[in-house]
Amino acid sequence: MNILELKDISMIYGQVRALSNVCLSVGQGEWLAIMGPSGSGKTTMMNIIGCMDKPSSGSVLLDGEELSKLTPSELTAIRRDKIGLIFQQFHLITYLTALENVMVAQYYHSMTDEKEALLALERVGLADRAKHLPSQLSGGEQQRVCIARALINYPRLILADEPTGNLDETNERIVLNILRGLHDAGTTIIVVTHDPEVAFEADRTVYLEHGRVADVVKKIEGTAAACASEAQDLVYAAKA
């Protein structure tokens, strides 16, 4: 069963076609990576999937709901209830502690629960940093707080925009392990990335170019290295 279906999606900003007749389905529990060079339409696609923008044409079905027919308030409710967002730049609220940053998502969702928020931080290995402000955390720790915030309301879909883009190798591994754990637990994950290592973790990688799906690469068990290499080649090809 598909949790997400994009049907003939186009997005036009003035004279610019950011997306052009994109079709894509994402199954429940699938981990999908979206790759492509800058300006290929990745962020536009994330905005549309994340209910933060509406396509110029085409339809988007998320968990069986047609997004183009929903009001802004209903789209907000979808984001709140069904989607967890992870950002490259973390976007933590600077004046709140790590724990409070997680509780913010609870606050807008329903009720705040400090114990549950602390458990979410425990899941990402940051229980002992709960009372620290973002400025007192490393980049990797901030990203893990961001992940804890994304998970706290048990979303059906995790949308991650370059989740390891600002991290060193060690923290990248930690974050990927967390995402892998979520995937193993059945959470659907869509990751926008430039990093073949991240794409390698995905069940499927969609390559965008000039607003179109240029290629789709499926992960084949036991051929991880080949898959990563293929993804890497696509990136190099795009850059060339």
Binding site: T76, R79, D81, H91, T94, V104, A105
Partner: peptide, 15 residues
């Protein structure tokens, strides 16, 4: 950016 983030994670306009 903070307002955008809050709206992205589900804050209503009234919140």
């Amino acid at each position: 950016r903070e307002i955008g983030l809050k709206k992205a994670i589900g804050a209503e306009n009234r919140s």
